[in-house]
Amino acid sequence: MVALLEAAAHPDYPAEIALVVSNRADAAGLDRAREMGVPALAIPSRARPREAFEAELAAVLAQHQIAILALAGFMRVLTEGFVQAWEGRMINIHPSLLPSFPGLDTHARALAGGVRLHGCTVHLVSPGVDEGPILAQAAVPVLAHDTEASLAARVLEQEHRLYPAALAWLAAGRVRVQEGRAHVAATDARGRLVNPLPAGAAVSTQPLRD
Rank of each mutant, 00 (worst) to 15 (best):
E148H: 02
V142C: 04
W86Q: 06
N92D: 06
H123L: 03
D188P: 02
L57K: 05
H183A: 13
A7R: 09
D26G: 13
A110T: 08
V115C: 12
V77C: 10
R24N: 14
L61D: 11
R176T: 15
L19W: 02
L30N: 02
V140H: 01
L208M: 13
I43P: 13
S96R: 07
V142M: 01
A8Y: 00
V83F: 05
V20T: 08
A165C: 07
V115I: 11
E16G: 07
L111G: 04
A201T: 00
L30K: 01
A189S: 13
A33T: 05
A55M: 13
L167N: 04
T121M: 05
L197C: 01
G81P: 06
R32A: 15
A67E: 15
A58H: 15
V60A: 12
F101L: 02
E131P: 06
M1V: 13
E56F: 14
A112R: 14
L97V: 06
A27M: 04
P133Y: 08
L30V: 05
D12Q: 13
M1P: 15
R192M: 07
E159T: 02
D146G: 02
A185N: 14
A153I: 01
R116A: 15
A18P: 09
E51D: 15
A52K: 11
R76H: 12
A182P: 05
D12W: 07
H94S: 03
P14Q: 10
L104V: 14
P99R: 00
L19S: 01
N92E: 07
A52Y: 09
G191H: 06
R24G: 12
A9C: 14
P102E: 00
G173N: 06
R181Q: 11
A202K: 03
D210L: 02
A47L: 14
A166G: 07
E54P: 10
A165T: 03
T187S: 12
E179L: 00
L78Y: 07
I43S: 12
L111H: 06
A40Q: 09
R24P: 13
E16Y: 00
P44D: 14
G180H: 04
L162V: 09
L208K: 11
